[in-house]
Design a protein around this nucleic acid. Structure first.
Length: 858
RNA sequence: GCCGGAGUGGCGGAAUUGGUAGACGCAAGGGACUUAAAAUCCCUCGGAGCUUGCUCUGUACGAGUUCGAGUCUCGUCUCCGGCACCA
């Protein structure tokens, strides 16, 4: 054993050892209790960043801990390898996306290994490999067969910079989730997955997600956006009266239906073109569709009739009415809807109050209420007025009664609506899974037969960045024979959204070694069912709706194909916080690296530098830390330890260079202890607490207490920061421990060994090396997790706290097992306490067992 | 606007079911060792007061419940995240 802690040598040594021994291989064995630990796989962008480091360090601790607890652990890793950056690199540097991607994977894999992560690489998944995306295509065909994949023309979100379509979930504040460009609307034909068919199940399933952070569940529910209401048909009227034609609306407020004073339809509504004669004005409205600044309307010149009142009301086209939600038409109740109110004011439409707050209902009865000018709509619930036979009902009742009445009279029916839209998966790019569809002039849309899978991306393409998808230029890809009639046909040239790839990769990991299955994937159901669902999933919050919702949907789809039994893919979810760091900004030179700042001044121009906020690490803000450099300076174990110690996993972590040094110091301290005591270890099996010296028994107690604390912290909510703090406390105690007798040495050895075992998931190489040096048989990771003895963990003495009227007045040492009466007596006998009582009347005395006595004075 | 979450020393963060606020780490100050520095070790470290080991005060703010509140209840403020013309 070296005197100095040589992390580089140690880390390489043990990485080699683990890999040669195949310690991280997961074998399917139904007799063992499994634990599936998964971290979100990375996009192979080139190098890993601190966000990855934190994510994977957390996952690795869990995986290693669970292994020591005797679980059969599956801890895989792979690559979310399709996507735009590869294609952009191809355009910019002329390197093929596949070459670029695989080179990045090669480098990043080395980085992950250098971190000492315990992955079973035998199950590695690379989504851009035909072996993998073949199954995307197979799932697509299955979905198509079941009507869950379909094609339609619609207005879609178009990112001009990425030159492709985005799903609703991928538009953040009107901008592209990837490049932040403003998204525009464009009409396109594209493929959809019918996630709406599972909307209700996905919503119901939210209640099962007990192991998920509440806010993620809330975001998912919000996104699905269920609402319950009524669809009502309003007949259109012409000069001669009611026609057969009906305008169908959706409302969640049937209790306000007597207050309807006009109707609005979306510019894209099928009736719009027919009703409106002034095409120029209609065009203007269409252009303002979705414009949030101002509500614009256009009277169609037509009226409809409120089926409940018989009132004739005007029909408008309005830019704020969405075609995508409900029926694309609304009944407008300006008195009780702020949007309708604003619109009514602007166009001078009548406002009819039909709901009043309950407290005003009384005044109304006695006729005291005055019609006041309204400044805004009353959107709350209350009591109905001006509503015929429903007058006097409360909103809630009225909703039920009126909905019932509408159904009874066949004016309409109750209806549930969801905000969630079907998932548009077509992307007009090359580097993705080809959609296995062929277009034949004679036969129309023809799915590629299963036997012809995979449809492989052609190599003979060039990347110019101009025009459409490179796939359009590949004759060999594009021109095919129709599988149905044999005639000339063309392939679909769109590829799938990469979120399809990541919607089932966790299932792919369950298949041993190679997922290029020659058989049906469903033949492997028992294998998949052994591992699924994922017991612990760890990743960033940014996927709260995107990837996590798609995966929940997709897992249900493949469940229905007989691939897996579980519908919910992730039992427990940990969303780790961001890795942040302070930023520096120069008025002339923008963001600066820390080394570009000297004494608060910019090294380029000498101007005063502004210390910016603490923000998520990003290259553009120049506040990144390079994991490679960190490993070079301190080693992987220090890097891991600090990123686990600085904050609990779910919270944002503020990077601190000084803090890293603190973690490094801690490891060096442990190293020094083991070095100093090497070869002096004693057998501890003969240790019996009562025969020990006071110092030995105290150290023994602290060790058991630490095992309890560390185990609890990990088990409860993965609060590694406090677990590590507890280990530091124990190490502090060990380091000031001076053994005098044989049994002191044994106690010391016991404490050290247990420290190393508990340290193993956090700083695995370090723990292995010292475990070996301390005479243990490798590997420390194959040791069972230490158990604590409740008796030995018990304090012999406690500090008894005495309060008077709830204020701390004295502390004293007392034997641990003292009775309440004993505690009470001791407290009352205490000199200081006596002094303070000074003959005053004691009202009562409260004793908290083994902890505290509170004397309440009158 | 709606839905979440948070607010504790100079800083990151601890604190079981309501029971000693500030564990652990960082920074800072003092000391030991050293020719010196680094490293290491020891001590101090929320604020105020003085008689230096004690008092008062202190967990965003204001009330309340309780023998006792960082923790529970109500109200207010601030910050962060998500959704947002969804009828």
């Amino acid at each position: 054993m070296k005197e100095r802690y040589d992390f580089d040598e140690i880390e390489i040594k043990w990485q080699k050892y683990w890999s040669e021994r195949g310690l991280h291989k997961a074998e399917t064995d139904a007799s063992k209790k499994k634990f599936y630990c998964l971290e979100m796989f990375p996009y192979p962008s080139g190098k890993i960043h601190m966000g990855h480091v934190r994510n994977y360090a957390i996952g690795d601790v869990i995986a290693r801990y669970k292994r020591m607890r005797g679980f059969n652990v599956l801890h895989p890793m792979g690559w979310d390898a399709f996507g735009l950056p590869a294609e952009n690199a191809a355009i910019k540097h002329g390197v093929h996306p596949a070459k670029w991607t695989y080179e990045n994977i090669g480098y990043m894999k080395k980085q992950l290994d250098r971190m000492g992560l315990s992955y079973d690489w035998g199950r590695e998944v690379t989504t851009c490999s035909p072996d993998y995306y073949k199954w995307n295509q197979w799932f697509f065909l299955k979905l198509y067969e079941k009507g869950l994949a379909y094609k339609k023309a619609s207005f879609v979100n178009w990112c001009p910079s990425c030159a492709t379509v985005l799903a609703n979930e991928q538009v953040i504040d009107g901008a592209c989730w990837r490049c932040d460009s403003a998204v525009v609307q464009k009409e396109l034909e594209q493929w959809f997955f019918k996630i709406t068919a599972y909307a209700e199940e996905l919503l119901q399933g939210c209640d099962e997600l007990k192991g998920w952070p509440e806010r993620v569940v809330a975001m998912q529910k919000n996104w699905i956006g269920k609402s319950e209401g009524v669809e009502v048909d309003f007949p259109l009227a012409d000069a001669g009266g009611i026609t057969d034609e009906k305008l169908r609306i959706y409302t969640t407020r049937p209790d306000t239906i007597f207050g309807v004073t006009y109707m609005c339809i979306a510019p894209g509504h099928p009736l719009t073109e027919r009703l409106v004669t002034d095409k120029d004005s209609l065009e203007t409205i269409k252009n303002k569709y979705g414009n949030q600044e101002e509500k614009e309307g256009l009277f169609t010149g037509h009226h409809s009739v409120n089926p409940l009142t018989g009132e004739k009301i005007p029909v408008y086209v309005a830019n704020f009415v969405l075609m995508e939600y409900g029926t694309g038409a609304i009944m407008s109740v300006p008195a009780h809807d702020q949007r309708d109110f604003e619109f009514a004011k602007k166009y001078g439409l009548p406002i009819k109050t039909v709901i009043i707050p309950e407290d005003r209902a009384e005044e109304q009865k006695s006729g005291r209420a005055e019609e006041k000018e309204m400044n805004e709509a009353f959107e709350g619930e209350g009591v109905l007025i001006n509503s015929g036979k429903f007058n006097g009902l409360k909103s809630e009742e009225a909703k039920r009664e009126i909905a019932g009445f509408i159904e009874e009279k066949a004016f309409g029916k109750r209806m549930v609506n969801y905000k969630i839209r079907d998932w548009g998966i077509s992307r007009q790019r090359y580097w993705g899974t080809p959609i296995p569809i062929i277009y034949c002039d004679k036969c129309g849309i023809v799915p590629v037969p299963e036997k012809d899978l995979p449809v492989v991306l052609p190599e003979d393409v060039s990347f110019t960045g101009k025009g459409g998808s490179p796939l359009l230029e590949s004759d060999r890809f594009l021109n095919v024979k129709c599988p149905s009639c044999g005639g000339n046909a063309k392939r679909e040239t769109d590829t799938m959204d990469t979120f399809v790839d990541s919607s089932w990769y966790f299932i792919a990991y369950c298949l041993k070694d190679d997922i290029d299955l020659k058989f049906q994937i469903s033949n492997f159901k028992s294998l998949i069912d052994y591992w699924m669902p994922v017991d612990q999933y760890i990743g960033g919050i940014e996927h709260a709706v995107l990837h996590l919702l798609y995966s929940r949907f997709f897992t249900r789809c493949v469940r229905d194909f007989g691939v897996v039994s579980a519908g919910e893919p992730f039992r427990n979810l940990l969303t780790q916080g961001m890795v942040c760091k302070e930023t520096w900004k120069c008025p002339d030179h923008d963001w600066l690296f820390p080394e570009e700042v000297k004494d608060g001044k910019c090294v380029h121009c000498g101007k005063q530098v502004e210390k910016g906020r603490i923000e998520k690490m990003s290259k553009s803000k120049k506040n990144v830390i390079d994991p490679d450099a960190l490993i070079k300076k301190y080693g992987a174990d220090t890097m891991r330890l600090f990123s686990l110690f600085a904050a609990p996993p779910e919270r944002d972590l503020e990077w601190s260079d000084k803090g890293v040094e603190g973690a490094y110091r801690f490891l060096n301290k442990v190293w020094g202890i083991v070095y100093k005591n090497k070869g002096k270890g004693q057998e501890l099996s003969s240790l019996i607490a009562h025969s020990l010296s006071p110092i030995a028994s105290s150290l023994l107690r602290k060790t058991h207490q630490t095992i309890r604390k560390v185990t609890d912290d990990i088990e409860k909510d993965y609060h590694f920061n406090t677990a590590i703090a507890a280990l530091m406390e124990l190490v502090n105690e060990i380091s000031s421990f001076n053994p005098e007798r044989e049994e002191d040495r044994a106690a010391l050895d016991f404490a050290v060994r247990n420290t190393l075992m508990m340290l193993a998931p956090f700083a695995p190489h370090f723990a292995e090396e010292l475990w070996e040096a301390a005479g243990g048989n490798p590997s420390v990771l194959e040791q069972p997790w230490p158990e604590w003895d409740e008796t030995l963990a018990k304090d012999e003495e406690i500090e008894l706290v005495v309060q008077i009227n709830g204020k701390l007045r004295a502390r004293m040492l007392a034997p641990a097992g003292l009775t309440d009466e004993d505690a009470r007596q001791r407290a009352l006998q205490e000199e200081r306490v006596k002094e303070m009582l000074d003959g005053r009347e004691i009202k009562k005395v409260i004793v908290v067992k083994g902890k505290l006595v509170n004397i309440v004075l009158g």
